[in-house]
């Protein structure tokens, strides 16, 4: 009887450990910002409603954000961005589907700072391109903050910028993803 209880308890503990150490980390309030720098003008926009999740087992990482949720300082810029360049009523979302290359090297149960390459498919305006960057994962008290920056060329994603406006918009737009993930299941 004692042996059965011991085996049962051991199995339960193992299950609890596996269940806690693995699984899905998620947030619906992630941040994505983009920054365009030219000698003529600097443009920055922020989105605080990014839906993003990753699997601490497979390393799969995904995010989805609404283009119209990007907020600019100037209302006119926001209007032009949505209506003229991003056509955000027709192409409402930007998505990323990729993976954390060295997910097995990250101990999500131990506070610390880890880095890993993140690779995947970024889709904007129905155009998908492979992107990769180095991301920093900071594990602190069960919350995982992931931060990564990469650059994209708007012309690669079929963003049409009128010639008159072109000098104001960089061909290398810096995108920063900064999200606090919590363990879901």
């Amino acid at each position: 009887m004692k042996k059965t209880t011991f085996v049962f308890t051991a199995l339960l503990s193992l299950f609890a450990f596996i269940n806690h150490s693995g699984g899905i980390y998620k947030t619906n309030t992630g941040n994505i910002s983009f920054y365009s720098h030219t000698p003529v003008e600097d443009i920055r926009a922020l989105n605080h409603k990014v839906k993003t999740a990753f699997s601490s087992e497979s390393g799969q990482l995904q995010f989805s954000c609404l283009i119209k949720d990007f907020e600019f300082k100037k209302a006119l810029m926001q209007e032009h961005f949505n209506e003229s360049y991003m056509e955000s009523t027709t192409f409402p979302k930007a998505t990323f589907d990729g993976f954390i290359a060295s997910v097995s090297a990250i101990d999500f149960n131990k506070d610390g700072t880890y880095t890993s390459e993140v690779k995947g498919k970024l889709t904007i305006k129905d155009v998908s391109k492979e992107v990769s960057t180095t991301a920093t994962f900071v594990v602190s008290g069960g919350v995982v903050n992931a931060k990564a920056t990469f650059n994209v060329n708007p012309y690669d994603y079929n963003v049409k910028i009128p010639k008159m406006i072109a000098p104001k918009i960089s061909e290398s737009i810096e995108i920063t993803v900064d999200s606090d993930y919590t363990h879901k299941h």
């Binding site: 409603k49 839906k51 989805s64 609404l66 119209k68 949720d69 955000s88 979302k93 589907d97």
Partner: peptide, 20 residues
Amino acid sequence: KGINGDDELTLLEDKDVTLS
């Protein structure tokens, strides 16, 4: 603003209509 979430993204199964 629209509806966020994507059927093809298996980790993001729920969807939100967003207001700002």
